[in-house]
Simulated assay, not measured.
Amino acid sequence: MKHMRRLRVNGPMRSLVRETSIEKTDLVYPVFIIEGENIKNPIESMPGIYQYSIDRFDEELYRILESGINAILIFGIPAHKDEVGSQAYDDNGVTQRAIRYIKNKAPELLIIADICLCEYTSHGHCGLICESKILNDETLPLLSKMSVSMAKAGVDIIAPSDMMDGRVKAIREALDENGFKDLMIMSYSAKYASAYYSPFRDAAQSAPSFGDRKTYQMDPSNLREAMRECQSDIEEGADVIMVKPALAYLDVIREASNRFDYPIAAYNVSGEYSMVKAAAKNGWIDEKRIVMENMIGIKRAGAKIIITYHALDVAKWLEER
């Protein structure tokens, strides 16, 4: 009779044989920078998360640096939006100014720039439109222009999330041509048309004004298609591939990890965060235990990088450990 319980008799023994662990270096914290002055807007659907104007961001930056988190994912919210998302690739846009500001204050902090037009367009879609149709090829030059603009601002990683076909190749070529051959691309390779994004659209003010995003984001039913998307992005020049969302797509993370010898990122998205926060507020769950179990599940599935709004809390709990 095998006595497997010998490996569980006490805390030190469980730690000795533990197969998966979470470290601060695994975590990326998303932040929202809004144009204007003296702004700290709470996002009601995402307790504990705020929109900051650049002049108020120091308090959040201090918390990030104190936590020991090494990387942030930045989303900019401009005052002006138009049909072509012109503020996305304006060298003096809110996101570009925020990147320069943060890099000046904390040069050691890795900054990842989300590359998508949805926060910058008046219609809220991720690409150009013509008669309610999302234009793929016509959008690629703008995504490339946006990537180069973010690179000039000093960003460390470019993360295209738009799900336009061919965007990784277009962005890689544009970066190389403009002297940014060493700049990494972390591609949202398997980004699903998920119901888990709703709170984010409050935070980024990016809800589409018509229709939905199902013609370019992936059908939640499809796994093999996700592998084709990952393969395509790798062939086009992606350095890291991402699965989004995380918790309902752990099988996709696992399959990508098994199939590709590339770093895998997973985005623990706003809806996943907000459900935990709501349940914890009502006293229905132990927030710390639930969050840490979720983090372990994502890591165990094969993700090396976890983008999560829980990052600062997780960092604190790791310190307590």
Results as ranks from 00 to 15, higher is better:
V168A: 09
I185E: 11
D137G: 01
C116R: 05
Y50G: 09
D261R: 12
S122D: 04
G93Y: 03
L110M: 15
M164K: 05
Y273S: 04
G179I: 02
M218Y: 01
P12Y: 04
A280H: 03
D212W: 03
D286I: 00
V240E: 10
R224G: 00
N92Y: 07
E255W: 10
Y273V: 07
L61K: 07
S15F: 10
V252L: 14
G68D: 05
N104P: 00
E236V: 11
D91H: 10
V31K: 07
V252R: 13
M146E: 08
I112F: 14
S187Q: 10
F210N: 02
Y249E: 14
E177F: 00
P263L: 09
K133I: 09
Q205W: 00
M242P: 11
N70H: 13
E229K: 07
A311Q: 00
I129F: 00
D114Y: 04
G48H: 02
I234K: 07
I129H: 02
K2E: 13
I22Q: 03
A238G: 12
R167M: 08
L175V: 08
L223M: 00
I22M: 07
K24W: 07
I64W: 06
H3R: 04
N38E: 14
I111D: 05
L250A: 01
A153F: 05
P199W: 09
V31Y: 08
E138K: 13
P78N: 05
A315E: 08
A303M: 03
G237Q: 03
V28W: 01
K316L: 05
P199T: 08
F180Y: 09
D162M: 06
L175Y: 10
L223K: 01
V155F: 03
A280Q: 06
S86W: 04
Y52I: 12
Y101W: 15
F75V: 08
E229Y: 07
G36R: 08
G11E: 11
E255R: 14
